[in-house]
């Protein structure tokens, strides 16, 4: 039901923009504009391409390619820049949407004493898994996080979140971060196209839903020079992700928990 409401609001926002006579600059200047409506405005004004749509978005990350790229951290840089993710410079307050984790931590149940050195000491790029059966959505007391029925993206409403952090407990992947303090003072290079968050709400990767709506691939996919990240529709048998899954042995994080993660790894 809430999805319908959101669609309606989106339409209403675009309509209102039309009525305003194409003066987004004036609207933007007003203080009453919330980050969300700002998002609507920029989305509506900058739509050169048709939106990318899928029935079930999924990601395949080729860790062999990632490994070869060495110290590269382009995916995180691009993502955190695009989404105004603050950098507090300490692990206690840290917020991260996508990051390079050690294989040991990302897949500790897969590790063994004689695991090959390359894998063992190699990186594993981790992010929200956009689970088919997301435990974070199940536990949210306000519906501030929900799974988009049409394409499976696990979304966040930063205006509804009460900051109880129950979703952080429920996530088996440590993919959710909480704004322990005001993030706005710690954004180095503010991107006006994307909303900033307030103190006291939870945030995470949203598979770049705002970029998909503009017909662009997720920022991390575009930024990866090694072409280690592939993004596509799992329900489309001809998609690139399906081809990769067909041709390679892939693993997912903590498959035993029944969350059905939609991020797959070639190791």
């Amino acid at each position: 039901m809430s999805v319908h409401r959101r669609k309606f609001l989106k339409l209403a926002g675009i309509t209102a923009l039309g009525l305003a006579g194409g003066a987004p600059a004036k609207i933007l200047a007003e203080d009453s504009i919330t980050p969300d409506s700002l998002k609507e405005v920029t989305e509506a004004t900058a739509t050169p391409k048709a939106p990318l749509v899928a029935r079930r978005w999924a990601m395949v990350i080729d860790l062999t390619k990632c490994r070869e790229a060495g110290d590269c951290n382009d995916c995180q840089k691009a993502c955190h820049l695009t989404h105004n993710v603050p950098d507090f410079g300490n692990p206690k307050d840290e917020i991260k949407w996508i990051w390079k984790e050690s294989f040991h931590h990302a897949f500790h149940e897969q590790e063994h004493e004689f695991l090959d050195e390359k894998t063992k000491h190699g990186p594993a790029v981790v992010l929200c898994n956009h689970c088919d059966n997301p435990p974070c959505v199940r536990v949210c007391p306000t519906g501030a996080t929900w799974k988009r029925e049409n394409d499976g993206i696990v979304m966040m409403d930063w205006h509804r979140c009460i900051g109880c952090r129950y979703c952080v407990l429920a996530c088996p992947y440590g993919s959710r971060s909480f704004n322990w303090r005001n993030p706005r003072e710690f954004i180095k290079d503010l991107q006006p196209e994307f909303p900033t968050r307030t103190r006291g709400v939870v945030e995470k990767c949203t598979f770049c839903d705002e970029r998909l709506a503009r017909g662009q691939m997720p920022a991390c996919v575009e930024a990866c020079k090694a072409k280690a990240i592939t993004f596509g529709d799992l329900e489309d048998p001809n998609s690139e992700v399906r081809t990769l899954l067909h041709e390679h042995f892939t693993i997912r994080r903590k498959p035993g928990l029944g969350t059905q993660p939609e991020v797959y790894y070639i190791v």
Binding site: S2, I162, V202
Partner: peptide
């Protein structure tokens, strides 16, 4: 313990 205490009524509104 709430991050956004003044939004606590959201538990009843939603």
């Amino acid at each position: 313990d709430m991050g956004q205490p003044y939004r606590i009524t959201n538990v009843f509104l939603h």
